[in-house]
């Protein structure tokens, strides 16, 4: 293997990491803050892709505007979900798991009823369907877009959680809900907004994945497992998910270059199991009370 190949593999690793991370961001926020095991995460991603499709086909909105618009639409869906269902289940993790699993089926079947089960198509500007090449190094433009969006979202989340008043409140609720509430923080509102934020982030991921892969009612299922992996390995914190995605993304890319995609995935899963055996709390475990 020569240097150009390795460089390509490493760059692709960054891109794969950004894809895995953007899929996991919403779940990180929801699980990390509210402790909700959101099995409907994949379907929120799917809704993001369908929002983009709808905006494009019925309203003719340009693709780049569709990305933030999908955030808003899916965040609203998340808001409804939280107010209507999740908020009654905060102290019952197993019930949440079952309820969100049910929600995922309901969302999937509703989309199938409305749009049919045939794959949909999102069109993007021609410039995104090409690549950037520097010598022997090459990467597709759309992967750069995903990387940029992911970086922007991570920075935005960091800013929100660590530099704003709302962020202080969220972290306080995360560490100890009752204590935070006794200081006058409206914990219910914090949960509602973070759940909605997490859903919106899944929506952004959906509008990106719809272009990279395919728009189908069942598309969410393929992302939800790897999202959970990132969150569990990372320990539920933002930094943890970033580190976990970076490590697994690079491993996936480099191992796949040396061997093949199937074996790479196998090795990564084995490593994750071994890792969790010795560090079940994940890379960067959070302090505070686990609900």
């Amino acid at each position: 293997m020569d240097l150009g190949t390795l460089a390509n593999a490493l760059i692709l690793g960054v891109s794969i990491a950004s894809i895995w991370l953007v899929a996991a961001l919403g779940l990180t926020v929801i699980y990390g803050t509210a402790g909700v095991i959101n099995m409907a995460h994949g379907e929120l991603i799917m809704l993001g892709a369908y929002s983009t499709y709808m905006l494009q086909v019925y309203l003719g909105v340009p693709y780049l505007i569709c990305i933030p618009a999908s955030f808003v639409i899916v965040a609203l869906v998340g808001l409804l979900l939280e107010r209507g269902l999740i908020r009654y289940l905060y102290n019952r993790p197993l019930d949440t798991l079952l309820a969100t699993c049910g929600v995922s089926l309901v969302l999937m079947q509703s989309v199938r009823l409305i749009f049919g089960s045939d794959p949909k198509y999102i069109s993007v500007p021609e410039i995104f369907s090409s690549n950037i090449a520097l010598g022997s190094v090459s990467i597709s433009t759309f992967r750069v877009i995903i990387l940029a969006v992911t970086a922007l979202l991570v920075f935005g989340l960091w800013f929100l959680f660590y530099k704003t008043r709302f962020g202080v409140q969220v972290r306080a609720v995360m560490q100890n809900k009752e204590m935070a509430a006794s200081f006058g923080i409206n914990a219910g509102r914090v949960y509602m907004l973070t759940f909605s934020l997490g859903a919106g982030l899944a929506g952004v991921a959906g509008s990106l994945f719809g272009v990279l892969a395919i728009v189908l009612p069942t598309m969410g299922a393929s992302y939800v497992v790897q999202s959970f992996l990132m969150v569990v390995v990372g320990g539920g914190s933002l930094a943890g998910s970033v580190a976990a995605s970076a490590a697994t993304g690079e491993m996936q890319s480099v191992l796949a270059s040396f061997t093949n995609a199937t074996l790479a995935r196998f090795i990564i899963f084995v490593l994750i199991v071994v890792f969790l055996r010795f560090r079940p709390q994940g890379l960067f475990a959070q302090g505070g009370v686990r609900r």
Binding site: N8, L12, S15, A256, A261, R265
Partner: peptide, 20 residues
């Protein structure tokens, strides 16, 4: 000769090999 897992949507490594 490369095989990707069923349902996988990540072809980056495969295309790197094809490019090589």
């Amino acid at each position: 000769e490369e095989y990707v897992p069923l349902g996988s949507s990540e072809f980056g490594p495969v295309f790197n090999k094809i490019r090589d």
